[in-house]
């Protein structure tokens, strides 16, 4: 069969599809289960509404399959790139026959908006908008995961959690290797020398796909990464 081993997919979900809620922002700012001061809620509402016009959500992935994919306990292979990873990543990807290298971003206009607000208004507003941007970037990642899961379910394939360099003891500097697997300027994201993505509100990583993949919770019990915020 002549199935291509590499396939590129780009999506632009609408703002509404990310289902951003006021409560998510309040929780991200620390007020989980607590009542936030009264003046904060109207600001959160106002800026979630305004954010809709400032985002250009782009989620994309490059799918590797067949002989391009290798999953071992401490080494993940994608085409000619080997990622030396911790057991945690290996456990998540166990059974994967396909690997999606993904990115998700809310675009660079959002960074410019934060920049403008920093000059025009107070830091509280800037912080709220910054938090909305971060949550939107994560929500774009959630959307991508859901879409992938749906797309592969008809073929009886399951997907792993999304895993990102900088989490689960996976070195952030591997971002360079990860981006070497993506087309240049993929989804409008650039990586600087220090492995930072621009636009700022962007995320990247890998998702394993296969009939025998089991979707696990984050394996925080066997990870020794200090200061990670996942188990919050």
């Amino acid at each position: 069969m002549n199935t291509p081993t590499v396939q590129t997919v780009i999506n632009n979900p609408r703002f509404e599809e990310l289902e951003m809620k006021e409560q998510d922002i309040l929780e991200a700012m620390g007020y989980a289960g607590l009542d936030a001061p009264g003046y904060i809620k109207p600001l959160v509402y106002k800026y979630i509404a305004e954010a809709a016009a400032k985002v250009e959500i782009t989620c994309g992935y490059v799918l590797f399959s067949n002989h391009d994919v290798g999953v071992e306990k401490k080494c993940i292979t994608c085409k000619n790139v080997n990622f030396d990873v911790d057991d945690v990543i290996g456990i998540h990807l166990r059974g994967a026959t396909e690997l999606a290298i993904f990115v998700a971003t809310i675009g660079d206009e959002f960074d410019d908006w934060i920049g403008d607000l920093s000059e025009e208004t107070d830091q509280l507003t800037v912080f709220i908008v910054d938090t909305i941007g971060s949550e939107l970037a994560e929500a774009a990642g959630d959307w991508l995961e859901k879409t992938l899961a749906k797309n592969f379910s008809s073929a009886q394939k399951k997907i792993s959690n999304r895993l990102s360099p900088g989490y689960c003891n996976w070195d952030v500097s591997d971002q360079h290797k990860l981006f070497s697997l993506l087309p240049e300027n993929f989804c409008g994201i650039k990586l600087n020398k220090s492995a930072m993505m621009i636009p700022r509100k962007s995320i990247s990583g890998i998702i394993g796909i296969g009939e025998n993949v089991k979707r696990l919770d984050y394996q925080c019990n066997i990870c020794d990464m200090e200061n990670c915020y996942k188990p919050r």
Binding site: M29, G30, Y31, A36, P37, Y39, I40, D122, Q123, L124, F127, I128
Partner: peptide, 11 residues
Amino acid sequence: AFIPNLLISAK
């Protein structure tokens, strides 16, 4: 207290 509290005090 959380960052917004700190920021409103700073204001």
